[in-house]
């Protein structure tokens, strides 16, 4: 108990300290470019809570980051550097779209269920490819996941154009889904999709799976030291593939939620780089599923807040990119106290 409390406080100290430091640095920057630095900063941090609709937008922004971040936690914990979140997200989105469009007259719950399953399955399949290649042929997963992102972008574009393109809209955009396929909103928070609640519930589940089951212990052992895992009889290759299935599945779910809950259709380039941000979110959380909730929320907060800031105080929203950069810098820095004994 003492140990877990200690680890918890130690794992919180770093991120919180880093975020405070980033905000301080950011304020200096805003001070330099704006006449109304306080207003700008208020917008950046608190405008998300000004109205229910603002808050709903924040929730919707957080959901894919949280899900992809959780997925990345699984793959990283299994020692797989999965940078393919974006591709898995797109595959999930297109599969959910295709499923929902294929059965326009099915009842809502069935349609939503099928579409979500299709999204998860497609994302998982997209994660399985690099996983199996790594295990069977020792192909580096960074290369394959990165490459598969491009394949996914072009493949989904092709599928939309050749089969479900809404010709009344501009670009590679699918037909709008039948209304009964739309995810319900969070009660009392119109515009915020219920997917956020599910994503929030999945975080503690992921923690339990990774840290409170033998399966999770074996997965982490395979990730931390695969030679050890093999020697003690862990089926390490299988763990790696399963981790990639989960990782891809969670990203696919993020795509399905986006389509069913927010976009209601597949749009090319619907993601502003959720895959990459999701990976940053996981890394900043020190690859911890509970920490991912905090970092995903923080990222969603400043991503949306930057928009309000630009409108009100004329501070360019690209400030947020600077802040994100600072955050990575401060989180990866290790401040050493004294010298360790030799």
């Amino acid at each position: 108990m003492r140990d877990s409390l200690q680890t918890l406080s130690r794992s919180l100290l770093g991120p919180v300290g880093a975020i405070v430091a980033v905000m301080a640095c950011g304020f200096l920057l805003v001070l330099a470019v704006s006449d109304e630095p306080v207003l700008a900063y208020r917008d950046l941090l608190f405008a998300n809570f000004d109205s229910r609709s603002n808050f709903a937008l924040f929730v919707n922004r957080m959901t894919p980051l949280l899900l992809i971040g959780l997925g990345v936690v699984f793959s990283f914990r299994a020692g797989v550097f999965n940078v393919g979140g974006e591709g898995q997200l797109y595959l999930g989105a297109i599969a959910a779209t295709a499923t929902a469009l294929a059965f326009p007259h099915a009842p809502g719950p069935v349609l939503i269920g099928l579409s979500l399953i299709a999204g998860i399955a497609a994302g998982a399949a997209w994660g399985w490819i690099p996983g199996i290649l790594k295990v069977r042929l020792a192909v580096n997963e960074v290369v394959t996941t990165l490459m598969l992102n491009f394949v996914a972008l072009l493949l989904t574009e092709y599928l939309v154009i050749n089969g479900m393109r809404d010709t009344t809209a501009y670009g590679a955009v699918s037909y709008v889904l039948a209304e009964q396929a739309w995810l319900p909103d969070i009660p009392g928070l119109p515009g915020a999709t219920i997917g956020a609640v599910i994503a929030l519930l999945l975080a503690p589940l992921a923690w339990v799976a990774l840290f409170r089951t033998e399966w999770g212990a074996n997965l982490r052992a395979a990730g931390a030291n695969i030679r050890f895992a093999e020697a003690v009889g862990v089926r390490a290759a299988r763990q790696v593939v399963i981790a990639m299935l989960i990782s891809g599945g969670l990203s696919g779910l993020a795509g399905a939620f986006y389509v069913l809950g927010i976009g209601h259709r597949f749009e090319q380039n619907f993601s502003p780089g959720f895959g990459l941000i999701g990976m940053t979110v996981a890394l900043l959380a020190r690859v911890h599923p509970i920490g991912v909730v905090a970092t995903a929320a923080f990222y969603a907060l400043i991503l949306n807040g930057a928009g309000y800031m630009q409108i009100d105080a004329d501070v360019p929203r690209s400030l947020v990119n600077l802040l994100a950069g600072f955050l990575v810098l401060f989180m990866t820095a290790r401040f050493r106290r004294g010298q360790a004994p030799a």
Binding site: D3, V208, T213, A217, A221, A224, F228, G233, V234
Partner: peptide
């Protein structure tokens, strides 16, 4: 091959012994 240095003593010594020592119930450790 002998140990996973980053994991705890409890985790290292329990690996492959969970079932024999009944260290899990309903799948949870």
């Amino acid at each position: 091959r002998g140990l996973c240095a980053g994991m705890t003593i409890a985790e290292n010594v329990s690996t492959d012994n969970y079932a024999a020592r009944k260290l899990t119930s309903c799948g949870l450790i």
